[in-house]
Amino acid sequence: MTSVSIDEASLRQSPGRRLSTFFYRHPRLRLWTLLALPVLWLGVVYIGSLLVLLLSAFWTADPFTAKLVHEFTLDNLRRVFETPVYRDVAFRTIRMAALVTLACAVLAFPLAYYMARIASPRVRNLLVVAVLMPLWGSYLVKAYAWRTILSGEGAINWALGPFGVSFNGYSNTGLWLVFTYLWLPFMVLPIYAGLERIPQSLLEASADLGARSMRTFFRVTLPLVFPAVVAGSIFTFSLTLGDYIAPTLISSDQFIGTVIYREYGTALPFAAAYAMVPIVVIVAYLLVARKLKAFESL
């Protein structure tokens, strides 16, 4: 009886109100209405396309028409693992990703530390904007700008000229600089947030218990902010691992991204097989990062 009277009451209300009452009474339906679109996107478009990519690694392409032949084969994977060139490219890319991550961490830490613990609120806000600003610019514009900076007549060589030194910018060293520039904000922000989260009283307690600044840093600050560094490194590492534009523009060497890019037009199955390499590396990296509690810092 009561439910009937409630329904009568709700009939008198506006349609919008009736709808919200309906959803209020059916929380499960409400949840699915909310999540339908993102689940579809993640499930079909995102995961689905990845699965198709992985699946195609076990197919072959017709060498003349470049059309896919749906026949199961392990040839592509075998080629990835047994050809020395592709192994070298993979290791070169991983090494580059590691060096870029290291450089970003070394540059980001003091900056983030200054922002979080020393700078006045005004300077801090300015720096946050300054760190974020490059992200507003187009990736391509920045990459081409660096191509100009690194060229034989570019800014770097112009500055080094008076010392009689010249720098070959179109090299892996140049690429390392470009990557470090491109991904630095992704390292600064998590470290900054991580440092902000450390209560001032912990640092005071350490000093109170007799520790000088250096010891407080190594015993308290660094261990507490380390997960945030790992969180930042997920970005710098994975972004470097998958990039193909900067290597194409700056370096003459092959990287994982450039190999996939080159192969996928003519030999999609092989490109797909090679794409498994960075996926496996990243999954392994994420597992280690989870062990180091990095996800609690994101």
Partner: peptide
């Protein structure tokens, strides 16, 4: 003198225990 050179110790309001 800085805190680490003083013969005093503090019990903090929020305890300030090292979480790690």
């Amino acid at each position: 003198l800085p805190p680490y050179d003083r013969p005093v110790n503090t019990v903090f309001q929020d305890y300030a225990l090292f979480p790690h």
